[in-house]
Nucleic acid binder design. Structure first.
Lengths: 197, 197
DNA sequence: TTGATTAGTGTACGTTCGTACACTAAAATG
DNA sequence: CATTTTAGTGTACGAACGTACACTAATCAA
């Protein structure tokens, strides 16, 4: 039909640029980046990438990346024989983990897990939880609550029409907490740990 | 001395905007966002945020966020009586998730945990592990190994002078793997999950 | 080989953006 | 209360940006 489509290759360059600068460049600099001599070429490319769902426009018509822009090959098991490289394809530029875990920076804070009361849901002592500061939580949410001047991480449950805080450790035999007064400080939206020494 | 400094508050709005759009807005839209009536105010604010190290300029003089822009406060428990705000808002330290979890982006990739064979060390099905690609691992490391064309996450142990792969699930009764040939693909340096619906 | 199709070129133009500059407003200090 | 300092206002202007449009180049299918 027509010319060969080099868009994937060009997208890769754009993704690298974004990884370095955290910014979609102007058509001019994108043209320079890709070796185009007319910035219209960059404009057309961007149009195609928009249609393909890699870029979108903000309310004020500026260019911004979409979630798809950040999709990276994750390692996938099973792997084809003798080809672990292909399955991994280590991306030189990784999506920012911050983007994955933090949606509203202004109300987000981190907290360290103390003790093993939430071990059944994979929250080990020393793990860091990502918390969004708000009072409204839903039943089933893991929340940060203020109890006797201590910040506690527990699952919010409902018992006989009352809210209670449930530890997640069958072996540890922790009691469900049914305080008279309880203040929800934040909702846990994620967690992480580092195995680095 | 002078007017109260509302920069932290304004920075928070900018950070939220960035989290939504992955883009630093123009001075005009930033002014609208913050309720400024002159875009010069936004320009001045941005200048201050540059000096403070939250923003920088790309080679073509466009505005981009710095690593510090992505730092989050870490709450400290226990809390002083009735003062949960202070523990969060006046944090001991600020940290960026990327800096914490990814030290060498070029050899780092992500992988999703399948199954519950590592549940005792807090790796639940669906969790994402951060892996650094390298062959040299130490005993006790959690590693990604290639076994029968499958990528497996296990703990590397030494048994009678031989290396072996140990699952971490006492209840599940998984066997220790003692393959004739085993290839270490990567070392797990971190893990995370999101509780978001 | 020809025709259809799509990528990139070159130029022109209106709009928006960033910056400069003089000015006003609000707080803290002495 | 006066002084000092810094945040925000208002206006103006050149430069950069995005877009439009006509044109050329490269590939594939018939």
């Amino acid at each position: 039909m027509a010319r060969p489509n080099r868009d994937p290759e060009h997208l890769a360059v754009l993704q690298d640029y974004y990884a370095r600068h955290r910014l979609i460049p102007s058509y001019s600099t994108l043209s320079t980046l890709l070796g185009f001599r007319a910035k219209t070429a960059a404009a057309r490319l961007v149009g195609r990438l928009e249609v393909a769902g890699y870029l979108k426009r903000t309310p004020d018509r500026r260019l911004a990346p979409t979630p798809r822009f950040f999709e990276r090959p994750r390692a996938i098991a099973p792997v084809r024989a003798g080809m672990p490289e292909a399955a991994i394809d280590a991306p030189a530029d990784m999506e920012s983990l911050d983007a994955l875990l933090v949606r509203r920076p202004s109300i987000t804070f981190l907290m360290t897990i103390k003790g093993d009361s939430m071990i059944d849901v994979g929250l080990m002592p020393g793990d860091t939880v990502v918390c969004e500061r708000r009072q409204l939580a839903e039943v089933g949410d893991i929340v940060v609550a203020l109890l006797a001047d201590e910040l506690t991480v527990k699952t919010l449950i409902r018992e006989n029409g009352r809210f209670a805080l449930k530890p997640e450790n069958k072996a540890g035999d922790y009691p469900v907490l049914r305080p008279d007064a309880m203040q929800i400080i934040a909702v846990v939206t994620g967690s992480f740990r580092s195995y680095r020494r």
